Computed example of a mutant assay.
Amino acid sequence: MIKYITIALLFLGFLGFSQETEIESQTLSAIVINAQTDKTLESVHVVNLNKVLGTITNQKGEFSITASVNDTLYFSYLGFKSQKIRVTNDMFKFKDTKISLTELAYALEEVIVRPYQLTGYLEIDVKNMPINNAYQYSISGLNVGYEAGKKNPSAATKVLGAILNPADLLRNLFGKKPNQMRKLRQVKEDDAIRDLLASKFDRETLTELLQIEKVDIEDILNNCSYSKSFISTANDLQILDAISSCYEEFKVLNRKK
């Protein structure tokens, strides 16, 4: 009798686990619209940054994508401000979920430029001038200073890269976020994401997918002997392929050490 009860409990536990697994990953459907006109938007790129999956909206602005609660969806459309949305339970419950994108013309109107007004009195003007929060670095023995910028995660590696072997810099850059760098292969396998990257030149989608800064991308390619012309003119898909190639070479070099 005890055996039967144990088997029954295990079976129920297995069913509960299966149902929980199913709930974790579901198909999310929604509609993308223009925030100003409420008209649906066709061919909007939708990327699940957590699962590295992509899709585009149809003629009615509709899309479906595999997602879980708390996944982050990234929306990109030419002429509109890119947007990130966190997936919630309500988005699965209600099938009429609408995602609004703002046209860049309207988004730019929200930017307020505040000029510095000088009075001509030094004591007053000095207090009103902005403080430069960029970090300064210097290397002992070299009469050179480096300005790394404000809150720059690659500040130290940029300085060290001036005197270390390029492979050492690559080890620092790739070693910081190994999980994100594994996404390189996943990104290359998804046609929707590849199409999106082929049309982009601003590196925004790449930084969101790989969770690295634009300066990291430049550092990686600079130390893999890619020209400045290529780095500045290549589309995001070409940059992705270059990073992937560079990463594979780095792993080979790292194994030999």
Rank of each mutant, 00 (worst) to 15 (best):
R194Y: 03
I239Q: 02
K183L: 14
I31D: 04
D71F: 03
L15A: 05
P130L: 08
L9E: 09
D219Q: 09
L10W: 08
S232I: 11
V159T: 13
Y116S: 09
E22L: 14
I243M: 02
K214V: 01
N70I: 09
F14M: 06
K151R: 13
L28P: 01
M91P: 06
E249C: 05
L122F: 07
K81V: 03
E42T: 15
E110Y: 03
N152Y: 10
I231Y: 00
D90L: 11
V252N: 13
G79T: 04
G13E: 04
E22R: 15
F14S: 11
I31H: 05
K93T: 14
I193M: 07
V113Y: 07
A148P: 03
E109F: 04
L210H: 00
Y146F: 14
Y247E: 14
N58W: 03
I33L: 06
N132D: 15
M91T: 07
K51C: 04
E110N: 13
P130Q: 12
N254K: 13
L9H: 06
D241H: 05
N152A: 06
L122K: 15
L108H: 10
G61P: 02
L164K: 13
L160R: 07
I239C: 01
F92H: 06
T72A: 05
F94R: 07
S245K: 10
Q83C: 00
T88R: 10
N179M: 13
K127W: 04
T97N: 14
L15M: 10
E103G: 12
K200F: 02
S25C: 04
S100T: 06
T72S: 13
S64I: 10
E110R: 10
T102A: 06
L253V: 14
L142K: 15
D216M: 01
H45T: 13
L196E: 00
K256G: 04
I2A: 12
A242P: 05
K93W: 04
L237S: 01
A162W: 07
